[in-house]
Design a protein around this nucleic acid. Structure first.
Lengths: 136, 136
DNA sequence: CATAAACCTTACCCTAACAGGAAGGTCAAG
DNA sequence: CTTGACCTTCCTGTTAGGGTAAGGTTTATG
């Protein structure tokens, strides 16, 4: 399989596959006589796995241990579980930060007259340290 | 006021101030005889405004029109309101994406035995297109 | 007065995760 | 034999600055 074909079958792009090789997330495949990358089924499975892991929010760095566990027949499911638990915590943190932003913006929005006048509660809030600082 | 001083008073760092000047978010200030940037109170107020706007989630590009409205005595509050409404929509989008990720990961996590065995529902989910694809 | 600390200047590299594009080689079909 | 569709490497751009270097300035102090 050349890179375009494995890209089609895995859902990654050739660009992404080369990039993963570059950062050492995928090992360098063997090359054809003309220098083309040649992949096999196992490579394709790894790529599918990586695509899914990225899709559910794991960074490429997160994917390293994840992929290692995928490849390891002697893994313990608790190790995988721990990685997912870590990720869940990070996502919960991000969620609460986003929710805080949302709340602040919504409160500002509600204070604004939303009319033709120049006076604007949103502008005032952003100009004044009062309302915004709490969100830290 | 030199850059360090206005940095202290505005809460931005000198780096950030120079960067904002670089991208045209702040206009270039006048220079002292020795080439040092010199700022006034109005500059400082703009910087405070920018810091707050960034804090509540606006990108530096978002800050351009926002700052323009801040400076414009003939603004209409409805214009400001519209920018905030746009941002709220973006944040809501991000929230729902994050929540979707969270749900998927939590479901995977719940399926995992979390023990010493190599069999792992999380790994299986990531290897198999089934569970993950729906989240698109 | 000399000098060291604390400032300031520009400029370049680093981050994440690729996408886009240039310049050039390769391969199968018509 | 020549397209067209591949493939290769390499470089640039994206966000929002942080880190550091090399060098000039100003201020405080002995």
């Amino acid at each position: 399989m050349k890179i375009g074909e494995v890209a089609n079958h895995s859902g990654l792009t050739p660009k992404t596959i080369r990039y993963y090789e570059d950062i050492g997330l995928l090992s360098a495949p063997r090359r054809s006589a003309s220098g083309y990358r040649v992949y096999d089924q196992a490579d394709q499975r790894r790529m599918v796995f990586l695509r899914h892991a990225r899709q559910v929010g794991f960074s490429t760095d997160d994917c390293r241990p994840l992929l290692a566990l995928y490849e390891d027949p002697k893994r313990r499911s608790t190790e995988v579980h721990a990685l997912v638990a870590d990720k869940l915590r990070v996502i919960e943190q991000q969620l609460s930060e986003l929710q805080a932003l949302h709340t602040v913006l919504q409160e500002m929005s509600a204070q604004c007259a939303n009319d033709h006048s120049a006076q604007c509660a949103i502008i005032d809030s952003l100009a004044n340290p009062l309302a915004v600082e709490m969100s830290k």
